[in-house]
Design a protein around this nucleic acid. Structure first.
Ligand SMILES: [Zn+2]
Ligand SMILES: [Zn+2]
Ligand SMILES: [Zn+2]
Ligand SMILES: [Zn+2]
Lengths: 130, 130
DNA sequence: ATAACAAACGTTATATTATAACACTATGAT
DNA sequence: ATCATAGTGTTATAATATAACGTTTGTTAT
């Protein structure tokens, strides 16, 4: 058994920063922010990010190569993620909508492929920006 | 008026390659494939890719940093794109499903954001791979 | 406790993806 | 003709991500 819920030192440092952030963070911006804590190399960041994603603690916003903390419970270890992204201020909000999630989780492609996971990114202008 | 439908030389070369390909192509793999035609620099590829995306001729698969030709008509200049992606063989298939597209296009977030565009990526194993 | 294993770590180097900046050319509109 | 827009070619560099290696730490089983 792995130590399923305990985070390692580096994982905790990286998660803390992502959770405190107002918006999505990029890997190298995380790196620059933790150099005072003795983390010096991209590898250390990317390894922590990979594990945190596996655990469902964070998600990657693919269209931005950036990372946000999970604020939802619908996404069940990143099998079903949806985000709303402002094209002006870069704000990202995790969408937690049971109906949407159910609809997409049960969506079946004509060509017979059974899906294990999806990621949906909506783009527009947020309240502030429109 | 711009020459809305005519492709430039480089755009045509890049589009041809993407259309002929069986699966998604990466920018640098396109580059290596067109060096015999006198295209030598990443910029030339990325510029063509950007325009082709704008025109709706191709799409970017964000989770793979790769590009596919548009095979749909539902996506109306890339405002509403959906893909099915095999995690084993990397096959990508554009999903053209009017109901899905309508459902998502009219989806409204609780927090009052009006969406202009979405991109949905499903992951699983294709027929061959499962 | 200790051996064995898995996970995490630190480090150096390198690969991959993407953009900046600048000078030049072609095209179409007024 | 002149002006604006789009496209080109080129060099350089930025930003994102992984490979490979040996070491250390934590967990489990005996
Ligand atoms: Zn989540
Ligand atoms: Zn905004
Ligand atoms: Zn399309
Ligand atoms: Zn497959």
């Amino acid at each position: 058994m792995a130590r399923a819920q305990t985070l390692s030192r580096n994982q905790q440092i990286v998660l803390d920063i992502i959770e405190k952030a107002k918006g999505p963070l990029k890997a190298y911006s995380i790196l620059f922010n933790v150099q005072k804590k003795g983390i010096n190399a991209p590898q250390q960041i990317y390894r922590a990010l990979d594990k945190l994603i596996e655990m469902g603690k964070i998600h990657k916003i693919e269209s931005k190569n950036a990372f946000v903390a999970c604020r939802s419970s619908d996404c069940e270890i990143s099998k079903a993620t949806a985000f709303s992204i402002c094209e002006s201020c870069e704000m990202v909000d995790e969408i937690s909508d049971a109906k949407l999630s159910k609809y997409l989780s049960s969506f079946n492609h004509k060509k017979g492929m059974k899906f294990k996971r999806f990621n949906l990114e909506f783009f527009g202008l947020c309240k502030k920006c429109k």
